[in-house]
Amino acid sequence: MTIVSILRWPTPNGLPSPPLVASLCAVLTTMWLTAPLVEVDFVRLLGSLGKMAAFAGQLFVEPDWAYLPQLLVKMLETIEMTFLATMIAVVVSLPLGLLAARNATPHVLVYRLTRDLLSLMRALPELVWALVFVSAVGLGPLPGVMALAFVTIGFMGKFFAEAIEVIDHKPVEGVRAHGAGWLQVRMFAMLPQALPDFVGTVMYILDHNLRAATILGLVGAGGIGYDLVMSMRLFQYDRLLLIALAIYLVVTLLDRLSDLLRSRIIHGARA
């Protein structure tokens, strides 16, 4: 019986592979060299622990219960913006996704153009699009919804296209062989196969959009964001606490809902 077993990596000579070691060293060196440039300073970080604790301490206040009705209204507006923008994006990105999938597109040129359009839409973050739309249509939730929908179409169109590209070709052939037309093949053979992935993406995006919607108020594009930023600036921690809790609660609930829906789609309704 060996008492000391000698450790080794699963390589021919038992040592880690040189390329792996080299890239690890490269990453660490880069981090060490660039940290001062972006003012990552561990001494300063340690020094500010006290300030952080003080800030956290200020959150232990009695919530401003009088603010609750306004919070509910604003939160509801945020949720409405999220769902509306996501729904618009679903409707628009389904056909765009078909055009942007290599195996479903009518022509390779259409495929390229749609891909480029989608990457343009998601090139800028929601906040920047919101700024654009606020100056275009004015303050309020409308530019917020437009900004969210815009970026979401860019993401979902791409995700959906990729979900279609990895589907099994056999059912497609099966449906095609029975004389189904171009659109019928896409509706009956491609869509059902890509749907679970697509629903998973929608759930993830919904979650992402909710968080994005909470910040759009910053530029006057509706939702809870305005209140969030104002209570930070005015040191109204009794409100901030409620707002943070409300966002956390809604995100968590959404997560539960998405798990439920996704497993139903993948495994089918329990009969």
């Binding site: 056999k170 059912p171 099966g174 062989a177 029975h178 009956f188 053979a189 196969q193 679970p196």
Partner: peptide, 14 residues
């Protein structure tokens, strides 16, 4: 002309 396949080629999710 209908076709029957070795791997059935059905849309399993439907």
């Amino acid at each position: 002309v209908a076709m029957v396949f070795q791997q059935f080629n059905l849309v399993e999710r439907l």
